[in-house]
């Protein structure tokens, strides 16, 4: 029996009258990649935002290794070991690639400093395929490379859980293959990941389990094959032109 790292119970978020996330329950076990999927606007990003403390939950509980983190501010959640990327890439525009990644190493879960932080940043840059390009300004990067920097920054915090919000979106077919291989390498290292994704190939080949959302609620849970053949899931996707 593997240990549960992250668990959500009845997590709900209301924006005025809109219930963006409605009573979400799920557990993420250690070394597991969990896919969080669903049509556009179903509440996937909002769920990640609630876990990472971007805004307060309206109801429910979130815990990390049994410790409640529900009402902690974002910086404390990051320090406890939850790192994330953003659906729309967010880099630090005035800094070099190296310093962008250092931000994660210096202030993340392990809070390194000096040569130690530089070492971590270096390692993570190599891991995402940007070795030797730390001196570049982020404005000089291609789109996939900006995504790599953001991933390296999240990894540099040495997190217990990694939240990836459509990290593969917007990549061309060749880049997509590179990207999937990169995330597979992370999975093979035994990382715990929540993967919000629309790319079905990626979901099938990367995820151990999947949670499917529609209109804020969980409508299915299981292995990728199970959920993708579930009639309720097919209906949810067919009602959406993104399927």
């Amino acid at each position: 029996m593997t240990e549960v790292v992250l668990s959500l119970r009845g997590v709900t978020k209301r924006f005025g009258g809109l219930v963006a996330v409605n009573g979400m329950d799920f557990d993420v076990a250690e070394h597991q990649v969990m896919g969080l999927i669903g049509p556009n606007g179903s509440g996937k990003s909002t769920t990640l935002n609630l876990i990472s403390g971007a805004f307060p939950v309206s109801a429910g509980r979130i815990s990390l290794r049994g410790t409640p983190i529900t009402h902690l501010p974002a910086q404390d959640i990051a320090r406890r070991g939850i790192s994330r990327t953003f659906q729309l890439v967010r880099l630090l525009p005035s800094m070099t690639v190296q310093d962008n990644v250092m931000a994660g190493a210096v202030f993340g879960h392990r809070r390194r400093w000096g040569h130690e932080a530089e070492g971590i940043a270096q390692t993570m840059l190599e891991k995402v395929g940007l070795g030797g390009r730390g001196h570049l300004r982020v404005g000089q990067l291609t789109y996939i490379d900006t995504k790599r920097v953001e991933l390296a920054r999240a990894l540099a915090g040495e997190p217990r859980v990694l939240l990836l919000d459509e990290w593969l979106a917007g990549l061309n077919p060749t880049e997509l293959e590179t990207g999937i291989n990169l995330i597979r390498a992370l999975r093979d290292e035994g990382r715990t990941i929540i993967l919000v994704e629309h790319v079905m190939d990626a979901i099938r080949s990367l995820c151990d389990t999947c949670v499917v959302m529609a209109a804020g609620s969980k409508i299915a849970e299981g292995t990728p094959d199970q959920v993708l053949s579930d009639p309720a899931v097919i209906r949810a996707y067919l009602g959406d032109d993104d399927a």
Partner: peptide, 12 residues
């Protein structure tokens, strides 16, 4: 540069 990134990186 980006206060949101700062917070989510663990900066108070």
């Amino acid at each position: 540069d980006d206060e949101t990134v700062a917070k989510h990186s663990g900066i108070n």
